[in-house]
Computed example of a mutant assay.
Amino acid sequence: MKDIFSRAITAVAALSGAVKRDVETPCATGIHIIVARGSIEKPGLGQIGVVAGNVTALVPGSTVVAVDYPATFENYLTSEASAASVFSTQVAEYAARCPNTSIALLGYSQGGQAVMDSLCGNSEAGFTPTLDLDAMFDSHVVAAVTFGDPSHTVGAPWNLGTSNKTGIFPRLNITACEPFSDQIAGWCDFGDVYCDRGNNSRTHGTYFANYTMDAASFIVKKWMVANNVTSLYGSPNATVTTVPSSATGGAASTAASSAATATATTVISAAGAIKPSVVAAAGWLGLAVLYMACQL
């Protein structure tokens, strides 16, 4: 029991110190995850950081870094282009420095569009055209996950969710993305005002409650295949939990953003399996209580 708790504390410490510049991040022995938050979320991992937290709990030795970009509605075109550029730069720099480490990209809303632009270039109307990811680094990106991507385009092979319409900034050319199609998973649901041009302002904030487990599992499976890994460290009963979103509008509210940038950790279920979750700083008190219980 104490050993399980020690692993939980280690996961907390690892992720809480992981959001830093790539040049400062040690080469991961697991997955290196680059994360772009959604529009108007506070700097950091944002809500989609919960997916990264689940992955790091399942794959020890993983690292997480946040894309530093404005994430604003004002000047959206330049803000999104900035994120796509940072993604490309971070992938290139990290791949050159850590050639044996696999990389996963995560993005929510505007950050999701940036993920796609970094992979296959920008072909959306009104945006400045950008190049796709340099072929030299293609093999390093084993998975890319998006939630509520405004560049969602009907018919793309990586589309998941319930949407049957294009987003507000649909791609004019998805062929540039097709070499990555097996590594991409993009969730967009019917009614989402951004990725589905719908009229339900709440839908855009529901992905974290509905697809966190699916997204984390997708990334881990792609990493396992790419690295010929047949089993994972930890309890065979380990599962990935979902975390409800508190966003109520078309973009994350300030309260939701604050909650989402909390540290990812692991907790122990009654059965002894390790389950990833998200806790705020106050969660350390809960871990202390858990520790005391483990001493009994």
Rank of each mutant, 00 (worst) to 15 (best):
M1G: 10
T203G: 12
V12R: 08
F73P: 15
A280L: 01
G121I: 00
A84M: 06
S151A: 12
R202N: 11
E178G: 02
S246G: 09
M213D: 15
Y291M: 13
Y194F: 13
R171H: 09
A144P: 14
G148E: 03
A18L: 01
I40A: 09
E80F: 06
A270Q: 07
T242S: 09
S235N: 14
K20W: 10
T206R: 09
T254F: 04
S6T: 04
A28L: 08
W284G: 04
N54S: 14
A271K: 07
S79F: 06
I34W: 06
T10Y: 03
A209Y: 12
I184A: 07
A256I: 04
C195G: 11
V240W: 02
I168F: 08
A264S: 15
S16I: 08
V19T: 05
A293P: 13
G161T: 08
P157V: 00
V154W: 10
P150Y: 04
P70C: 01
V225W: 02
E24S: 05
R202S: 09
N200E: 14
V51Q: 10
L131I: 02
S82L: 07
R202D: 14
P26A: 00
L105E: 12
V279K: 11
G249M: 14
S235W: 03
S163R: 05
A135Q: 08
E178N: 06
R37K: 07
N228T: 09
C294Y: 03
T72D: 14
L133E: 11
Y233N: 15
T263Q: 14
T56Q: 15
A256R: 00
A156V: 14
V154S: 09
I40F: 01
Q113R: 07
A280I: 01
P179V: 05
V279Q: 13
A71C: 04
A96H: 11
N54L: 10
H140E: 15
F87D: 14
V50Q: 11
G286W: 00
P26S: 02
T175G: 10
K20V: 11
V225N: 08
L287W: 06
G286P: 13
N100T: 11
I184W: 00
F127L: 05
I33Y: 02
I184F: 03
V229Y: 01
S16V: 09
I40T: 14
Q183E: 12
N227I: 03
N228Q: 09
G205W: 09
A176Q: 13
N54M: 14
Y94P: 15
G53K: 12
L285F: 05
S277Q: 07
D134N: 08
A28V: 03
N173C: 10
G30I: 02
